[in-house]
Design a protein around this nucleic acid. Sequence first.
DNA 1: CCTAGAACCTGCGAGC
DNA 2: TGCTCGCAGGTTCTAG
Length: 292
Amino acid sequence: MPELPEVEVVRRGLERWVSGRVVAAVEVLHPRAVRRHPAGPADFADRLTGHQLGAARRRGKYLWLPLEPLTGTGAPTQAVLAHLGMSGQLLVQPQGSPDEKHLRVRVRFADATATELRFVDQRTFGGLSLHDTVEGDPDGLPDVIAHIARDPLDPAFDDAAFHTALRGRRTTIKRALLDQSLISGVGNIYADEALWRTRLHYERPTASLTRPRTTELLTHIREVMAEALAVGGTSFDSLYVNVNGESGYFDRSLDAYGREDEPCRRCGTPIRRRPWMNRSSYFCPHCQRPPR
DNA sequence: CCTAGAACCTGCGAGC
DNA sequence: TGCTCGCAGGTTCTAG
């Protein structure tokens, strides 16, 4: 699925088209889509209905909308959490438009705007759920994702602590980048892109990274994500779209991911693809030398 | 405790 | 045409 830039594109769409609206009805068409909601589909639908949705928030690849307190003010105590998994989409569609083949959840609203929110997910790795929020958290952070690290675009991300954590791990750099408890929002595409930009091989041991190298890596992660966000994210196909179903354009700017046998844009050496963790790693064998 | 690998799903394109 | 295989942007569980 979508990594941080694609999820942020979706968050902005929710903020614009969904935040502030009151839920009139919820329809769960596939129970697996709410499997992270322990009390089940009926409870999910019942407890969401009647609530006003607050500002759309994001941490890494997780999205949530706090439920506005029904009485008084103060921090929200409940929030709807969404994760898109590998193939999830949150779409704002006109009421009555034909159901998508993989429509899993429909949310109708109690206003005159003739649109509804749809969670569509081919592979069903994603889902929606309702959770208590971390006590006193002003953004209504769901308690179940409190262990997810802040993401590199979060002003509160701690670069020094990240470096220390990396040095303490006995693993390789790409595995660490995909570990959402160390740094969140980075997935297979942006890991490969940031490593290419930093000239680091994906199997480089984290314990061998110097502080300046970690700083460079973080800079490149932030740059590549910001560039992707500016053009609506990365879409190879119609699976990765904003809430209006539109694709982003960053696939045209990728330097490593998906470019097997194409020349490295720095040195001309053909980019290689290696099987890695049930997926692939793309790298330049000249610019990104394997560790000895 | 930590790390590596498999499992969870559906669909698509390539090759036979 | 139709089958099988490999592959897909993530997370989570299990075995060691």
